[in-house]
Design a protein around this nucleic acid. Structure first.
Lengths: 256, 256
DNA sequence: CGCTATTTGTGCGTATGTATC
DNA sequence: GGATACATACGCACAAATAGC
């Protein structure tokens, strides 16, 4: 009998946790095969010398991790030897995922048609000699006077006829694209890194040269994988931090 | 037993489900305020005329949806009126979302029991005078010789008996906790910001003082919202960047 | 500071309902 | 129908954490 170790320990941990661990161990060891059935509750109760209540609590632990599937009248089937956990960014809208689009305003001055040279294409990760509509500006939080970021936006020239781009923007540019061209953002790829703020940018942000800054580069992709826009944001270290919350997504409990 | 109420009800739904729905309704209606406490279990048992077992099953339903947080000796606090939305999400495994856990190794030397002073508690975002088991070390990528990060880990003292913590770690500490204590990470909150690397840390990382660095602070939460572990990673700017891809996903409406 | 009351956590026993084979 | 197995539900007792006196 292998399960005896768990039950005999007076153990700092609750009994049902020990039993659960023993069961998981037994599954990993192959004593209970994936796809096979676990012994019935009462039999397990006897093996581990615990009450049915405690055993069910232990089994529930396995269930929470998606290791087993239970069906009344049938039994408890082993589904996997290891939890297949999926963590997700929980958010209601895309702007919750990209923290600072909300309650901020972007002030832009002019848009310029450009062609990416070698330096730019490596910096923003696009093909060489790619055409873009370039807009730059400052992003302000709430009623703040100091900008929270220096922003560059590279818009796919397919949308060069875009309206309301210059001035004070309270909605993201991709929203303008969606509204005016019906093209929806399906994927956002972002890179976050640290960098020293160069003299020119430092001056515009009113910080000292050499200060640390956070650089966030985002590619917004449409439904067919086309890059709709690229944004580059440079944040002074003390004016911004990037927060996110990843939640474990558990597939809904099996309905009968 | 005399014919119990449970037996007399043909019950379209189990009793604990009905009770859970009623409780959720009461929260939505504002009878129980968000941030406030629910009545104690026994009181609710009396109100609904159910056993404590049934009531706990009902309460567990609310807990699974993240609507409440329970603390022994305190009570059941209402956290939200609606389950956290799973509307827009980026699906990925945890090691995809937390890029560097894979293919890296963490080298630790010793663990120390500490109590958070004012400075530390604000730095890592915990309560003052909170106890922690502190471990620090270096994280290396692949076969690299230079560390990609300076890492500090603060472990909930409930897990101070944790094994295999010192040396070269190829799995995350939360995996150790999960394996050894059966406590699962349900949510990860992370903050990313930029900072200048201080002299002491610069030396240990073999970079020049004043270089820009990326600081990633993560709180790993268990099923009851308890903080299992906090990690602080300091990355030299040129040795690390944080990549992520957020996909738009439309889930099937749960509506159990 | 220790004590007590409160509240949730853990654990046991038992009985009955219901789906599956 | 009968046997099996999980699901639901009642009861009780004590442990552990917390808050307040």
């Amino acid at each position: 009998m292998s399960g005896s170790t768990a039950a005999s320990l007076p153990a700092s941990q609750p009994r049902y946790v020990l039993v659960a661990q023993a069961l998981i161990q037994d599954i990993e060891n192959g004593r209970y095969a994936v796809g096979g059935l676990l012994p019935p509750e009462l039999e397990l109760c006897a093996q581990f010398s615990v009450s049915r209540h405690t055993m069910r609590e232990a089994i529930r632990k396995l269930q929470e991790q998606g290791l087993i599937v239970r069906r009344r009248g049938v039994g408890t089937r082993v589904k996997a030897a290891r939890p297949a956990s999926r963590y997700v960014l929980s958010a209601a809208t895309i702007s919750d995922l990209l923290p600072y689009v909300k309650d901020t305003r972007l002030v832009t001055s002019k848009a310029t048609a450009i062609i990416a040279d070698a330096a730019l294409s490596t910096r923003i990760g696009c093909k060489h000699s790619q055409r873009w509509l370039r807009v730059s500006g400052f992003r302000f939080a709430g009623t703040g006077k100091l900008p929270m970021a220096l922003t560059e936006i590279y818009i796919n020239p397919a949308f060069s006829g875009i309206q309301w781009l210059i001035g004070t923007l309270k909605v993201p540019v991709y929203t303008l694209i969606e509204q005016q061209f019906g093209e929806r953002v399906v994927e956002v790829r972002q890179e976050i890194r640290a960098a020293k703020i160069a003299a020119k940018d430092a001056k515009r942000l009113s910080v000292e040269t050499g200060t640390a800054g956070l650089v966030i580069t985002r590619h917004y992709l449409g439904s067919n994988g086309r890059v709709l826009e690229i944004t580059v944001n440079l944040h002074p270290a003390d004016r911004f931090s990037y927060l996110s919350s990843l939640r474990l997504h558990v597939p809904a409990t099996p309905l009968e």
